[in-house]
Simulated assay, not measured.
Amino acid sequence: MDRDALLEHVRTRRGSARSPLVVGVSGHCGSGKSMFARALVDTMPGAVRIRGDDFLDPTRSHRRSTDWDGVERLRLAAEVLEPHRAGRASTFRRFDWSARALGAPEPLPTTDLLVVDLIGLFHPEVRGLLDLAVWCDVDLDEAARRGIARDRELGRSHEALWRDVWIPNDRDFAERFAPRESADIRYRSRVRQPDIRTPGDG
């Protein structure tokens, strides 16, 4: 599905919904999840985005696992998804990356449309709490190239993590849980593929 059709689909679902909606956006690392989630919220007045980085454990997300163990899905469900869908007040905690600890509780925003973008999101622990699951349909190799290039542009050197942890984790998660197949919609992002050559590569 292209971007315009997807946005119109979300608007239609929102307009006909009888209860608050959750749109989950997932895909491989580097597939454009956050970019699309921001664009979606920007075009939907009153929508709220929950950042995936707020629900990552920085130590566990840097380790090999077959189920993206570093993604705190149960905390996401208890603090955000379940209360939002029930329309009840709640507080949630963002991970404070500077302090390397959970931040203070803050009120969960009141909205009829919540957008969550996160790796490892289409997992049995939370899949049933997503009203609309959008998969950023970029294959693993291309997503990794994009992510590595993005990190380099930001001055981050994570090549070993990509090679030894994040790419294998994505591959194993896909084999175990088939997130692409479980999505309601597959969205092909139009992100320009950056040049990731390093000096001397030719």
Rank of each mutant, 00 (worst) to 15 (best):
M1L: 13
A174K: 00
S90Y: 06
A99L: 15
S189N: 13
R150H: 13
F36D: 06
D96R: 12
G202N: 01
L74H: 04
R64V: 04
W68A: 03
P107T: 10
R51N: 10
G52Y: 05
E142T: 15
D96W: 10
E142H: 11
R14H: 13
L154W: 02
G52Q: 04
P179F: 05
V165H: 02
H123Q: 03
D201H: 08
G202Y: 01
L74P: 00
F122Q: 03
G46S: 12
R156T: 09
D172K: 09
V25A: 03
D57Y: 07
A133K: 15
D112S: 14
A133N: 00
G32M: 04
R156N: 14
S19Q: 09
R14W: 09
V165A: 08
R73I: 01
V138D: 03
T91I: 02
V22K: 02
A160W: 06
S19F: 01
V23F: 03
L81W: 02
W97D: 06
G147Q: 11
L161E: 14
L7N: 11
A178R: 15
E8A: 15
P124E: 08
G15I: 04
V116Q: 07
S189V: 14
A144Y: 04
S98G: 05
A144E: 14
C136N: 11
R60S: 06
Q193H: 06
I119N: 12
D172Q: 14
G32H: 06
R145L: 15
D131H: 12
G103T: 10
S26E: 08
L108T: 07
I185E: 04
G87M: 12
D151N: 13
V71E: 02
R88A: 12
D96A: 11
A133H: 07
H62A: 15
L161W: 08
E175N: 10
R13V: 06
D69I: 00
R146C: 09
G155S: 12
R18P: 00
G103F: 06
V138S: 12
L21N: 02
V10I: 15
E82C: 03
R93D: 07
E159G: 12
D96S: 11
G70R: 02
G24K: 00
I196T: 09
S189Q: 03
G32I: 05
L118E: 03
V71A: 12
F122N: 02
K33Q: 10
D117Q: 05
G24M: 01
R38L: 09
R18E: 13
R146E: 11
R85N: 06
L81P: 02
S182G: 04
L140M: 07
A160T: 13
S16M: 03
F92G: 09
D112R: 12
L129P: 08
I167T: 15
E125R: 14
L114Y: 01
V41G: 08
V126L: 09
R152V: 11
A183I: 01
V191L: 15
E106M: 12
L102Q: 06
R49Q: 15
